[in-house]
Design a protein around this nucleic acid. Structure first.
Lengths: 118, 118
DNA sequence: TCCTTAGTTCAAAAGTTATTGAACAATTGG
DNA sequence: CCAATTGTTCAATAACTTTTGAACTAAGGA
């Protein structure tokens, strides 16, 4: 690990809700959930926002305890903190993701992508 | 009914999450959930914020589709739109309320109340 | 070493949300 | 009718959040 992350019991409900209440961040979380176990780097999300802006949103997610970011070489490997979130707020993440999956109006990662190899 | 409310299918996930991501509004929703079926008026929430500010937060909850407000005399009777929320986002409200109930740090309605007979 | 790739930081600007007090409306009880 | 009660609206301000571009750092490959 490298960047500051809250411990599990420091994760705050209103902060998590507010952080998920942004369409860009919700799209990031959905995509992470759909690729669970696979650590992704920021470039996966470049169709959602600019590099700088992504850095901002990914920091918000990390600081809220929703994601974990590890520095590996020049990349950040980003994962969902599912175990921690499930421990702290049982059922919350699943219901948010299920609700998001049912919402056609939300932005999505990969929607305008050419699906290049890796 | 009197004031504008979204229909069930107009309720938006990011908006609901953002609206619940405010400690004052979360406290209102928790209290409504704990008294479910009993329509409450705004005065119940006066220990959370000023009258004017409550009016603002209650409007946010109503506009997001989280609550319903009915004008009855000079009062507004406020109820949780549980059925609609459960239909639209199954499990979400329950997990949010359960998570809030487990969080000692959140503001609560009635904490500093003398519990007058009403 | 130099260049590229990956991402951060900073400061400014833009936009949004929250909070306040004063003034207002509508209903109800005396 | 008058006054009290309940809550809204408005305008101002304060306080955040989001977005941007330019400059930066750090690692890795040629």
């Amino acid at each position: 690990m490298s960047l500051p992350h809250p411990t599990t019991d420091q994760i705050s409900l209103p902060i998590v809700l507010a952080v998920l209440g942004d369409p860009t961040r919700l799209a990031i979380v959905r995509y992470l959930a759909s690729k669970e176990g696979v650590p992704l780097n920021c470039s996966k999300f470049l169709d959602l926002a600019s590099k700088t802006n992504l850095s901002y949103h990914l920091a918000k997610l990390r600081e809220a305890g929703v994601t974990r970011s590890e520095a590996v070489g020049t990349s950040r490997l980003i994962t969902l903190r599912r175990d921690d979130l499930d421990k702290r707020f049982p059922g919350l993440l699943d219901s948010v993701i299920a609700a998001a999956d049912g919402d056609k109006a939300l932005p999505m990662v990969g929607t305008s992508e050419v699906e290049l190899s890796t």
